[in-house]
């Protein structure tokens, strides 16, 4: 697949402090790309470099195979984590201004804004001042302003913070719709459950270095331990356990079930498959529950950062 955005060995120093150290990422076109990492890892610096707010000391960034240039401003929509709006300006006026800064004509911007405002049911806010709106309301406006010029690349930095669950969901749906429409999304967050839900690819930054990159599926496959969660019914639990122990590593497990089962996590050798385990189990007990343990993004995140 074609990569929309490529950073090549990008480094950035502030005095003695290294914010980014030779970071290379590839963001495939039409994907939702999770840029993850603990606080201070360098995510925001990288995003600012992509937005041309600051220049890298070394390395290059290309968008659609072209080195970043001024005119790319209109190809990118950016919703920063530190966000706000002019407090004393009216909603409509402000949205028009910001849209024009992104290169839209006034009439086109007005037309698109009307559509968006109707869609998000905020049409009657047009003449309100920002200071009359609640935080969540202001965030909706910010979202609309970010996507209004229909950029190729959207960058969201913690987009859900400050939203109630209903609005967060609304925004999530909109992000998915935008991807359907062909946009590429970079998504920077700490909230791993939204990474699971949304991201196709991820890159993990820690202490200025990229320590992991790839499609979320591949990474999960790489991190899986060939462990299965089972719920069994048998007359002699002790015997079954010792039988299992001869062939596999077993650990006690915790999960919810209707029955009073024997709950175990069973780790297989890498050359054995789920079928091997299943046929072994059906010979000795009744299998009520059988589930492969896939590492969550959260597990991978914590584990990689710790090991780093």
């Amino acid at each position: 697949m074609h990569d929309l955005l490529v950073t090549d060995s990008v480094s950035k120093n502030f005095g003695d402090f290294t914010a980014l150290n030779k970071v290379s990422i590839r963001v495939p076109e039409g994907s939702i790309f999770g840029l993850l990492g603990p606080n201070g890892a360098g995510k925001t610096t990288l995003i600012r470099i992509i937005n041309q707010i600051t220049m890298p000391d070394e390395g290059s960034v290309t968008l659609d195979n072209e080195p970043l240039a001024d005119h790319h401003i209109r190809d990118i929509g950016y919703l920063p984590e530190e966000r706000g709006l002019y407090k004393s300006m009216k909603v409509g006026e402000q949205a028009l201004y910001l849209a024009q800064l992104k290169g839209l004509s006034k009439s086109e911007a007005r037309k698109r804004l009307k559509t968006w405002f109707e869609r998000l049911e905020i049409g009657d806010w047009w003449n309100k001042k920002i200071m009359e709106l609640s935080k969540g309301m202001a965030q909706k406006i910010q979202f609309v302003v970010t996507v209004l010029h229909e950029p190729k690349l959207l960058i969201f930095d913690e987009p859900f913070s400050g939203f109630d669950p209903i609005n967060a969901n609304l925004i999530k749906e909109e992000i998915l719709k935008l991807r359907e429409a062909g946009a590429t999304v970079i998504f920077s967050t700490h909230r791993m459950e939204s990474v699971e839900e949304l991201c196709d690819d991820i890159a993990l930054l820690n202490k200025a270095n990229k320590i992991l990159e790839g499609s979320l599926q591949d990474i999960k496959r790489r991190y899986k331990t060939n462990t299965y969660e089972v719920g069994l019914v048998t007359s002699d639990e002790q015997r079954l356990k010792s039988l299992l122990r001869e062939r596999f590593d077993i650990f006690p497990a915790e999960f919810k079930s209707l029955n009073d089962d024997l709950k175990l996590n069973i780790k297989l050798d890498f050359n054995e498959t789920s079928n091997d385990l299943l046929s072994f189990l059906t010979n000795h007990a009744e299998v009520n529950h059988f589930n492969e343990l896939v590492p969550t993004a959260n597990d991978i995140f914590i584990q990689t950062v710790k090991n780093n």
Partner: peptide
């Protein structure tokens, strides 16, 4: 008003 990053990115 914290709009600075949006503005300087445009």
């Amino acid at each position: 008003s914290r709009i600075i990053e949006v503005i300087v990115s445009s």
